[in-house]
């Protein structure tokens, strides 16, 4: 790979700018295709293919105009927003990070959201509605609420349900969830929207400990992610 192309690719990845690296499989041409510009000299149909694949996050080979091209899509990492710096979160954070997620923990309660309990993660101590408005969940974002406390979970949920977040779940028993559904209906959400919430949280693997519950949530999230095409966020 040409040094200048690699350097620009790395800059885009660090800046979380979606980009497709295009390789002519004759080894002669390399280019970067962004939503709004191109670095390199490639035919227009190849540019078009690169942008479509970037939007669908679908890397792969295609034959275009008699040449074979490899399209390597680099979208920013999937995000997991966790509401509640609770015990389950302490195990969910490293698991999700290993699975490749950019993890963000939101909890305004100072005694919960400490760097000591949550080393090496982005901790936001704003109220969940403010934090969620700033984070702007998109279709490459999952939202998990774990506080059990309606005054923390609900405001986050309200923004999650108005967003394209691909997975939304809330910890709590069926009874807790039934009450949550009533509150959301009172807030004006219809049933179809409310049914986007996966409840009870996680796959039923008999999880008991915080780590096991975290595992079941991450497993469900993964299943949802791969059951439908996940498209790239708007640039």
């Amino acid at each position: 790979m040409r040094g200048d192309i690699f350097s620009k690719l790395q800059t885009a990845r660090r800046g979380k700018t979606p980009v497709t690296l295009v390789d002519g499989l004759d080894g002669k041409i390399q280019a970067l295709v962004f939503a709004d510009r191109i670095e390199g000299d490639i035919p227009e149909p190849v540019v078009k293919e690169a942008r479509e694949r970037l939007r669908d996050n679908k890397s792969g080979v295609a034959e275009i105009g008699g040449g074979r091209w490899f399209f390597d899509c680099h979208n920013p990492p999937l995000r997991l927003i966790i509401i509640g710096a609770v015990h389950i979160s302490q195990t969910l954070v490293p698991m999700a990070a290993i699975a490749g997620y950019e993890v963000i923990v939101v909890d305004p309660r100072a005694s919960f959201a400490t760097a000591e309990r949550f080393p090496n993660v982005t901790l936001i101590d704003d109220w969940p509605d403010e934090a969620m408005e700033a984070l702007k969940p998109d279709n490459r974002t999952a939202v998990v609420t774990l506080t059990h406390d309606p005054k923390l979970d609900d405001p986050a949920l309200e923004i999650a349900l108005k967003s394209d977040a691909f997975y939304i779940t809330c910890l709590g028993s069926r009874r807790t969830h039934a009450k949550r559904v009533e509150r959301l209906k009172a807030m004006g959400f219809d049933e179809a929207t409310i049914s986007r919430i996966y409840a009870p949280a996680g796959l039923d693997i008999g999880a008991v400990s915080p780590a096991e519950i975290a595992l079941s949530v991450l497993a469900e999230l993964t299943a949802v992610l791969h059951a439908k095409p996940i498209v790239a966020a708007a640039a």
Binding site: L9, Y101, E102, N120
Partner: peptide
């Protein structure tokens, strides 16, 4: 706050390539 997702770094193959080239 340090590196937000150090666990993910093992998967950053291109980051490793960059470091080695340097």
């Amino acid at each position: 706050m340090t590196d937000p997702t150090p666990f993910a770094s093992m998967d950053d193959v291109l980051g490793t390539a960059e470091g080695w080239l340097t």
